[in-house]
Amino acid sequence: MATWDLSKTKHHVFICNGSSCNQVGAEELTQAIRKEISDRELDDIIHTTRTRCNGRCLDKCVAIVYPKGTWYKDLKSEDASLFIDSLIANEDFTGKVSHSFNGQVFERADDGIVVGIPKDKEKVIKVSKIL
């Protein structure tokens, strides 16, 4: 079992590899992000973890970046270079943000219909953008 030295790590990227994300290219996304990191010799500052379902299947493929707390959606393998560029610049990857942590709660990006199920699962919340 590996024990990574995380003392220089600035970004931890969780890449969803749950079934919905896998159906649309999560494995290819994971490999493209890891290759980009390796090719740029950024392994010391960007750490990746492949996860199971993160519960945002409508946003597939999903990646979450900590410690900033930004959730990304609709990622494709061809986005890997720009995604890594955004991490290095410490900026959000424009157009791909699903939710951002404001210091207290996660706020969703206002970009259309988002369906969420409360953890009590008693009702479905639908939020839609007014056009």
Rank of each mutant, 00 (worst) to 15 (best):
K126G: 10
L82I: 10
P67F: 02
I37E: 00
A109E: 09
H12S: 09
M1V: 09
L82P: 06
V13F: 01
E122Y: 08
Q31A: 11
E78R: 14
D39T: 09
E41S: 15
S100R: 15
I130N: 12
V105T: 14
K96W: 03
A89F: 01
V124Q: 05
W71M: 04
A63R: 00
I84C: 01
C21R: 03
S20M: 12
F14S: 06
V62H: 01
R34F: 07
L87P: 00
R56T: 07
D110W: 10
I15D: 00
L131V: 15
C16A: 03
F93C: 08
G18R: 07
E122S: 13
A109W: 01
R40K: 03
A63C: 07
L42M: 04
A2R: 13
G25V: 04
I45R: 06
A26V: 03
R108E: 12
K119M: 13
G25H: 05
G103F: 05
T3Q: 13
I37R: 03
N90P: 07
G69K: 06
L6V: 13
F101P: 03
C53M: 07
D110E: 15
W4S: 12
R108T: 12
D44N: 08
V127E: 14
H47I: 05
D92K: 10
N17H: 10
A89I: 00
S20V: 13
V97E: 02
K119I: 10
V24F: 07
F106Y: 13
E28D: 15
E122N: 14
C53H: 08
A32L: 00
W4C: 09
M1T: 12
D74I: 08
V97M: 10
I37M: 00
